Amino acid sequence: MNCPDCGDERTRVVDTETSADGTSIRRRRECQRCSFRFTTYERPEWDSLQVKKRDGTIDPFDRAKLRAGIERAVEKRDVAETTVTSLVDDVESALQDRETRIVSSSLIGELVSERLRDVDKVAYIRFVSVYKAFSEPEEFLRELDAVLDAEVDDFEAPTDSQ
């Protein structure tokens, strides 16, 4: 640990204390060169959400990356910035509520696509085409047909019985 005052790397731990909830460790350190004292905190990296990608690698959850993907899908659509923020908050909250700290990228894609479908159908198609890695025009058509069929079902009124 380098001293924040003089930059020297020779520091020593003066005091160590565990947080009340046991999730982090507070350390008081002192620079052996300039005697400057400072505090550091340690907490396990696994305390935060981790994302397991399709190739098996695990990366920290990145809210900005999630937001960027959603913004690309809603680009040039009539979707308010507050709606995007709400969608990101909702997905992140759903992930935080899970019992595991490691979530699959496909789960994130499913959560986003479910919510985007209700927000904007075109943005939904854009998002799932990337998330599901469409490579053939028929895949677009199948997804578009599913969206249109659901829309027709939503608009059909029940028959009146007299």
Rank of each mutant, 00 (worst) to 15 (best):
M1L: 03
N2S: 02
C3N: 03
D5V: 04
C6T: 04
G7I: 11
E9P: 09
R10S: 07
R10W: 03
R10Y: 06
T18C: 04
T18H: 08
S19E: 11
D21M: 06
G22R: 03
R29P: 00
E30F: 05
E30D: 07
Q32V: 09
Q32A: 06
C34P: 05
C34D: 14
S35D: 12
F36L: 06
R37T: 06
T40Q: 01
T40I: 00
R43A: 12
P44G: 15
W46Y: 12
D47Q: 15
K52S: 10
K53Y: 12
R54V: 06
G56D: 03
T57M: 12
I58G: 09
I58M: 09
P60G: 13
R63W: 04
K65S: 06
A68P: 07
E71D: 13
R72P: 15
V74P: 14
E75P: 04
V79I: 07
V79E: 10
T82Y: 01
T83G: 05
T83C: 04
V84L: 03
V84T: 05
S86K: 11
L87Y: 07
L87S: 02
V88I: 05
D89K: 04
D90F: 01
V91K: 01
V91S: 01
E92F: 04
E92L: 02
Q96N: 08
R98M: 14
R98P: 08
R98H: 08
R101K: 12
R101H: 05
I102V: 15
S104M: 09
S105I: 01
S105G: 00
S106H: 03
L107R: 00
L107F: 00
E110R: 04
S113V: 06
R115M: 08
L116V: 07
L116C: 09
D118K: 04
D118T: 07
V119H: 09
V119E: 11
V119P: 06
V119T: 15
D120Q: 12
K121S: 15
K121I: 14
V122Y: 10
V122W: 08
A123W: 07
A123L: 14
I125S: 02
R126L: 13
R126E: 13
Y131A: 14
A133H: 10
A133K: 12
S135K: 08
E136Q: 14
E136L: 13
P137L: 15
E138H: 15
E139W: 13
F140M: 09
R142W: 08
E143D: 10
E143K: 11
E143W: 12
E143H: 12
D145V: 03
A146C: 07
A150L: 01
E151R: 13
V152M: 02
D153Y: 00
D153T: 08
F155K: 04
F155R: 08
T159L: 13
S161L: 10
S161M: 06
Q162H: 10
Q162I: 02
